[in-house]
Amino acid sequence: MGRYLLKRVVQIIPVLLILTLIIFCLVYVAGDPVALMLPPEAGEQAKAALREALGLDKPFYEQFFIYIGNLLRGDFGTSYQYNQDALSLVLERMPYSLQLAGVSLACSVVVGIVLGVAAAHFRNSPFDLLVNGFAALGQALPGFWVAIMLILLFAVKLQLLPVSGSGTWQNLVLPAATLTLVTSAKIIPLVRSNMIEVMQQDYIRTARSKGLRGSTVVFKHAFKNTLVPVITIIAMQLPTLIGGALITETIFAWPGLGMLIYRGVANLDMTVVQAGVMAVALITIVANLISDIAYCIIDPTIKYQ
């Protein structure tokens, strides 16, 4: 297992390189930021000077190597919008993202597993139908619509929670609820179908034939066998929750990475976009690594090539 994990860690290096290249290319083709950075009345000469200062006049590959060199020194460039180091901006926003993502993910996992297991247990009952309906709705409804409806209900009509912003736990409730709704809707059907499949396996019949209680059969023998696919989908949700919660963060004015990236794109502040996307990508990679470690722990028989 140790060697397998070491291999996985080493594999991250080429992934990071390719990732850097992709991010760099995207920004390269996205357009010339110089026009936005200078006042409209600036002349061609001033623009050319700025381009030269930023190294934008150099050929593509040269720019790329300079970029990588800078990254290695921890220099992600300066955001012209905020007039601040892009890395420190990302690091500032990261705790907000992690907080929102962490709470939403924890809630989604609990809701997803509880409802998924229960729906599998009472399959084809009215309860199962209800849970399935909830999951289908959660997947079909766009996140922004859910967010707006929650705001209308809890903030505007009932006035229980703040509309937007950050700072208190009340601010966290609505964005976390939005993300939980959307994310748990993806986890529920997966847990349910895996649970149903596992419950039909021979070893479950064996467990029952030993006289074990129903709860031991479900939570020990069946549940562990559903964990590998469930962890896979959970790991897939994490990056979506951190960087992809863009719309939710924007609606609720939650100052996380998603909003930072959104503003960066809107204003062609490419250093910020690059740093933000890089951070989300890193989190994705770490999440995958953690889920790989989890697989090893859950299923010691998995054969790693």
Partner: peptide, 21 residues
Amino acid sequence: LRGNKMSMIFQEPLTSLNPLF
């Protein structure tokens, strides 16, 4: 009574034991 006074073994030894324990 199950597993105690009466017990059962099955056709498929390969799948009748839980692979994760």
